[in-house]
Design a protein around this nucleic acid. Structure first.
Lengths: 341, 341
DNA sequence: GTACTCTACTGATACGCGCAACTGAAGCGC
DNA sequence: GCGCTTCAGTTGCGCGTATCAGTAGAGTAC
């Protein structure tokens, strides 16, 4: 009579616990736990199981994540720490799929925009995730700190793979390679590379540029002519000037991303240059604006679903102690060919 | 002798607990708790406090969030459930500031991209946040479920304010108003409204459009000519046709956002129309591409910092049981005037 | 009838922490 | 010497769950 049934008016109705379910089903808390968790090697007849499940459903019982985390030492959360550079729609849909795919494995996916001046450790304190995923590789002592805090694994999405499965092998070089191959196939022999003005993304840009460089070397083209392109009218004009006055003249540009590619297209128009006739441009990301720009923008699109599934697989393998998956040869990305090339 | 001191080689080193700190400092666990939490009304001399703090630092002690959450019934996490529509850089920087500002109040901010087919409740189970923030208003029974799960408060960022502080008063009408006023000030008498093709954002679009409508009425202009603008070449061309053939002809367009505004500019150019001479265009968001497009795009920019601070204040007030803050008259947003108008 | 096994559970403990209640000693007024 | 207060802590409970170790009872073996 002390329990549930209907809390007295005014009093906060407590959420039901396993004990409430046990009481209602006429069994012990242990049995409830065994039934609801399908604990193996426990002999419990189906009738009892039914009774427990019914009681749980009646009460709207939901196990307390906090209590579970307390026992297990970690919660069922996968924490992605966002980088300080702006994330666009591509990342957005990657996260969406990650959320789904990790959910299928019983993990809850959350992201945390890292606030400047706050140590990363403050975040684990509040979440105790099963795994921490970052964009760039954490230093060894950060990883040590994580382990000391009881979080075993961390994974970086981008960075130089270290072979220990700690850094995911997402081939940004491949992105640059696709750009360069596409332009080379269209007959361009002298490529430019539009380097982002934002220094925060230079890690990524470096990798993509390397892909372009290698491809140029492989195909016998000249080194790509790298020019920084800040997102200002002047910045774009300068870069265009660099490419147009180079000798031999740059006839096609690989841009770090679509924002920069679009800026170059617009800048070219301003100077009376025709895209793609005077200058071909290829971006990365397939932003919404890319398909309706004038001219429409050729770009490299990531298969975010495939990417998310690959990342999920890696994460789950880590957590289960299985060896890292063999990297698929090409993590889905492809050239969307439009008017700008 | 059973405890700590140095785990045998091979064994996982357990993370230090308050008991370890207590042992090292030569006090009881309770004292450790009192010292580290600065619990008021506890008389503990500074020397002892120092000893405890030193021991904690030596061991690298970090309190277990799980245990704390278990006692308090909620964690110190503010959970933002992302909408299913794509989020852009504006939201990104809003989140960044939210993370910082909430952090100042001891809350950890995380976002969860909602995965289709998974009930929202699965997420609370795994996080037990102090507060759940959504973009659109949850239904009453979802809110009830939340409360039954022990989470007292939820807040929606956008939606019709209900006066109970449950829905934040972020004036999207104001956005439309600023757009319309800007165009009217430039002498335009017949406005168009570019309605987003994506139905998922219609709640927001509705509010912004209402702002435009009211402003037109206030200023004695005709009703805005609303045309849907899907992000395809055809879609844009159709909308332009609608506006150009209307009588009187539409001379300026308020777009739901910059993506659509840029698409309209590009589409106009394709048809040989001059922007802003034949058609003025104003967007919302100030995307990176807006400042370097051709022509550069006039747009409404949100002051994400001010917005984040307002949201933070509201959340903290809710959690502390203080009344909702008076809505600032204008939550920072302003027109960035460029070439397209 | 005893010894053993198997079924179907239950009891108790531990996880790490916060907090209420208690204690032992010192200080103080008279 | 007594009662009272303040100091400086400690003991112990409870949050909700997972899980190990146990156990009453039924069934079988001989």
């Amino acid at each position: 009579m002390t329990s549930s049934s209907r809390a007295p008016k005014g009093a906060k109705r407590r959420r039901p616990t396993a004990a409430d379910v046990a009481h209602r089903a006429g069994v012990s808390r242990a049995t409830v736990s065994y039934v609801l968790n399908n604990t193996p090697h426990q002999v419990i007849p189906e009738t009892t199981r039914e009774r427990v499940r019914a009681a749980a459903a009646d009460l709207g019982y939901t196990p307390s994540a906090a209590a579970r985390a307390l026992i297990k030492g970690r919660s069922d959360v996968a924490l992605l720490v966002l980088p300080d550079w702006p994330i666009g729609p591509t990342m957005g849909s990657l996260f969406e799929r990650l959320s789904y795919a990790l959910g299928e494995h019983g993990l809850t996916f959350v992201t945390h925009p890292r606030a400047a001046g706050r140590p990363l450790s403050d975040v684990w304190k509040a979440i105790t995730p099963a795994i921490v995923v970052t964009f760039e590789d954490l230093g060894q002592d950060e990883i040590d700190k994580l382990e000391r805090a009881g979080i075993d694994y961390s994974v970086a999405l981008f960075g130089d793979p270290r072979g220990d499965g700690r850094v995911m092998d997402i081939p940004q070089q491949q992105t640059g390679r696709l750009q360069a191959e596409h332009l080379a196939a269209a007959g361009h022999r002298t490529l430019g590379y539009a380097w982002p003005g934002d220094p925060r993304v230079s890690t990524l840009a470096e990798q993509r540029l390397n892909g372009v460089r290698r491809t140029c070397a492989d195909l016998g083209l000249a080194e790509p002519n790298v020019a920084p392109v800040p997102l200002t009218l002047d910045g774009v004009a300068q870069a265009l000037h660099t490419w147009r006055t180079a000798s031999p003249t740059v006839t096609a540009v690989c841009a770090y991303n679509d924002d920069i590619a679009l800026a170059i297209c617009a800048g070219a128009q301003r100077q009376g240059l025709a895209v793609p006739h005077d200058l071909a441009v290829i971006g990365v990301d397939d932003l919404p604006a890319a398909s309706v720009a004038s001219p429409t923008l050729t770009t490299v699109r990531f298969d975010t679903n495939a990417l998310a599934d690959y990342i999920t697989d890696s994460i789950v393998r880590r957590l289960e102690g299985r060896p890292a998956a063999k990297q698929p040869t090409v993590v889905g990305q492809s050239v969307i060919c439009r008017e700008s090339t």
